[in-house]
Design a protein around this nucleic acid. Structure first.
Lengths: 261, 261
DNA sequence: CGAGTAGTTGACATCTCTCAATGCCGGTGG
DNA sequence: CCACCGGCATTGAGAGATGTCAACTACTCG
């Protein structure tokens, strides 16, 4: 059993997925940003106090999404963006031949669903990788609020721009790195995000399968697996299934700086 | 000599780049969105008339960027977003070993520079691939205007979200397609963008080198070249250096739908 | 005319994918 | 309690794709 880190230790990993089951309706629980333990890294980050109070006025509905359930699917009408309170989600596109392309992973304090703004429909699907809890933020309200408060508008814009940056760096990764550089970059990115949330940077539990990592990084699951053992042989990591311990953070950085310096 | 299409036929391709030369200071010429020939596909697209009039009030400065010159560089302070009036730009990141990673190409009617919103500095550089003309749009003013006009705010958000989508689909491309599928997808994407601007969908002149295409698509320039000849052998294209004629648009689509159906 | 840049092509090396076998774990049913 | 099964991960061997290095051409510029 993993002794490890990461969101919501109280959510039992035993509770298991029934693959297709639809997400439960919103519960009645409402949430205030100003008292949330994630307030400094989530939506309200960078807002002035009056703006955060305005957010509080919206009383976001909290919702649980069990492992394997979807929060929204490709083509669904876009109404909410979602803040992850605890747990992990993946974003993915279904290719018509049935395979999926994973386009991102989202952990506590991150926002999901911004891809819907352009067309009023979600361009990707979001699926929980473990039992997960989110806040549903009605985009229309947020948007209205933004036109009254420059600060809020700016925060939304920054969030979206950050998303652009995130994808830009992934592109770089896919475009010009080989397998071990990609995996190193991926692990370092996760490590950093965990660190920023107060979890261990050096030891964590992956919530995604080898296939999902592979899809995200543009390689096959076997290559992911081989690359894990390679990094382990080089004494950079200890890997036990999904449990990861980084032995040599610097070495890992160099591994992926080979190309980028 | 290419008889071909694409922006600004009046700009002579002969005028040549002095690689490092800095962009000229803004000229005094100002521009109105409401009378611009690109108004339906550029920034004002989707805005109400009063909102467009407000844009007119800002009188965007027009500016010329000669081939090879940069509009902004990685790390530059973010002040403007730029609308391409005529010509072609590329966005790219410099990897520290000196190589560049191209992250996008931009033609008339498209916007460049949104990547700066997140951090107040540009995360990429923009370089003209031919003599190019742009409108400089002061982001702060636009942003101010947005907090007064919900429509403007929404337009900005949509633009940014569209950028996210664009990158998302590129990721898919890099992640799960092989060389000929990538090149086919790239050409179809260009074809579509040209078509939407009233240029020929089937015949155009590439403004970027094989190396730039390769960087963008995550492959080496030799592979790009080989793949061009492959598509030509399959009678899907006629290629003469940068002059492209698509012989079989449907065939090309199938080529890249192999995976996506 | 000589030098430099861009593109094409060939031969070979390297990497990743594909296919297949195996091991491990947890859950289920006899 | 044990046998069996399904899902996930690991590993090996060989095939296939792309990268690397190098030669050659065409074209432009000075």
């Amino acid at each position: 059993m993993s002794t490890v880190s990461l969101p919501s230790p109280r959510i039992s990993p035993v509770r298991i997925l029934r693959q297709a089951a639809e997400a439960a309706p919103p519960t009645a629980i409402k949430t205030l940003c100003s008292t949330c333990h994630l307030r400094d890294i989530c939506l309200p980050s960078g807002m002035t106090e009056p703006d955060v109070n305005r957010l509080d006025g919206m009383m976001f509905a909290r919702r649980r999404v069990l492992a394997g359930q979807t929060l929204y699917r490709e083509g669904d009408r876009f109404q909410f963006i979602y803040a992850v309170r605890a747990g992990t989600l993946k974003s993915s596109l279904m290719l018509a031949d049935g395979r999926e392309q994973v386009s991102g992973f989202h952990i506590a304090g991150e926002l999901v669903g911004l891809d819907g703004v352009a067309q009023g429909r979600h361009a990707s699907a979001a699926t929980a990788l473990e039992d997960t809890e989110i806040c549903a933020i009605p985009y229309a309200h947020l948007s209205d609020m933004a036109s009254g408060a420059a600060g809020v508008h700016h925060v939304i814009s920054r969030l979206m721009s950050r998303e652009i940056l995130r994808e830009g760096s992934l592109m770089m990764l896919l475009g010009s790195m080989n397998a071990d550089e990609r995996l190193a970059a991926f692990l370092l990115n996760l490590s950093e995000r965990f660190g920023a949330r107060g979890y261990s940077e050096r030891e964590f539990h992956l919530r995604m399968s080898r296939a999902e990592i592979g899809s995200y990084l543009g390689m096959k699951l076997e290559t992911v697996s081989r690359t894990f053992t390679l990094l382990q042989q080089d004494s950079l990591l200890e890997v036990d299934k999904r449990h990861i311990r980084i032995l040599d953070l610097e070495g890992l950085k160099q591994r992926f700086d080979v190309r980028v310096h």
